[in-house]
Design a protein around this nucleic acid. Structure first.
Ligand SMILES: [Mg+2]
Length: 321
DNA sequence: GCGACAG
DNA sequence: ATCTTGTCGC
């Protein structure tokens, strides 16, 4: 057992390195085991990405982290294969037979002592979800805004585009640049993008904010749109380019309900090959959220979101010039 | 090779 | 999300 809990939100990467450093010589673990120690196995790929950038290969023994199948996996770059990794493990008494760890089950170390931050985040998501209001609690609709983020490594460019609801004309646009170190982990997107997005929002009466990602159409009902909505107490809509949870009833229809736990929790809006998956963020009914996105839809994407996406990309390209 | 868990 | 030539579709 272990009861470590960091006082501040520690960087995920340093927790991964902490865990990796706890693997004893002669033992191995998996990316999923480290993710589980972080609090959620869905982070396994993020763990792999972090370890692939390990700058101290022998001090932080990432060669002791293998696939859940027992396969060794690559080391020192995908192009370099697993030769070196096998060599290091053999030196430590871990035998590799047919590309797999021999006696994998007994060699497997899982007794990590790191702060399970993702568990605390899940708890927070549960609390957020309980605060979501799925009704229209804003005045007359005057504006819709779209928000998105573009990346160049840890350099992030967030953009907002505000449009007039009646004439669907652009009213305002703005971008910011910032560093984002929190990795992309499915179901935890808001911890990566919400801080940047929040900085762009100045509460404007009559505005509904469309956010690139899910609202309540999330395993815990706390997608990025809901988290931002509840956090800032503003009307938000989740408008995603793909599905996270739930099933689209009619995949071919221009408009189809998305069911989750036997209830309609979202709508799929399609234009040709492109689709937008709409769900309530906060303080908006599903009906209103869907109407807003439908009317603003262009090329399968609500216009303010499409423009915010383009704007964020433009800001990124212009910055690297 | 398939299926795939937002960005 | 990004890596990226030529390709595909409206
Ligand atoms: Mg995005």
């Amino acid at each position: 057992m272990c009861a470590c809990r960091t006082d501040t939100t520690e960087d995920i990467a340093s927790l991964v390195y902490q865990a990796t450093s706890q693997i004893p010589e002669g033992m191995v673990t998996t990316y999923g085991d480290i993710a589980t120690a972080l609090g959620d196995r869905v982070a396994s790929r993020a763990v792999g990405e972090i370890l692939s950038k390990n700058e101290h290969p022998l001090i932080v023994p990432c060669h002791r982290v293998v696939y859940s199948t027992g396969e060794v996996g690559w080391y020192g770059g995908r192009d370099k294969g697993s030769e070196r990794k096998i060599e290091l493990l053999e030196q430590e008494g871990v035998h590799i037979v047919g590309g797999k760890v021999q006696d994998f089950a007994t060699r497997r170390f899982r007794d990590f002592c790191i702060d399970p931050v993702l568990k605390w985040m899940r708890d927070e998501q549960d609390r957020m979800a309980a605060q979501v209001i799925e009704e229209d609690t804003f005045g007359k609709l005057e504006y819709i805004a779209g928000l998105d983020v573009s990346y160049e490594g840890e350099n992030a460019f967030a953009a907002i585009v505000l449009m007039d609801w009646e004439h669907m004309k652009m009213v305002e646009e703005r971008t910011i640049q910032c560093k984002i170190t929190f990795p992309y982990i499915p179901t935890f997107l808001s911890y990566r993008e919400a801080p940047a997005i929040r900085r762009l929002i100045e509460k404007r009466p009559g505005a509904v904010y469309l956010i690139d990602g899910q609202g309540v159409l999330h395993p815990r009902g706390a997608g990025i749109a809901s988290r931002i909505g509840v956090g800032l107490d503003i009307p938000t809509v989740g408008a995603a380019k793909s599905v996270l949870v739930g099933s689209v009833q009619d995949v071919d229809a221009d408009s189809s309900p998305i069911l989750l736990d036997g209830r309609i929790r979202g709508w799929a809006l399609r234009q040709g090959s492109k689709a937008t998956y709409v769900s309530v963020g906060h303080r908006v009914s599903l009906d209103t959220a869907t109407r807003i996105c439908s009317r603003a839809l262009k090329h399968g994407i609500p216009q303010p979101l499409r423009r915010a996406h383009e704007l964020a990309n433009r800001a990124r390209r212009e910055a690297s010039t």
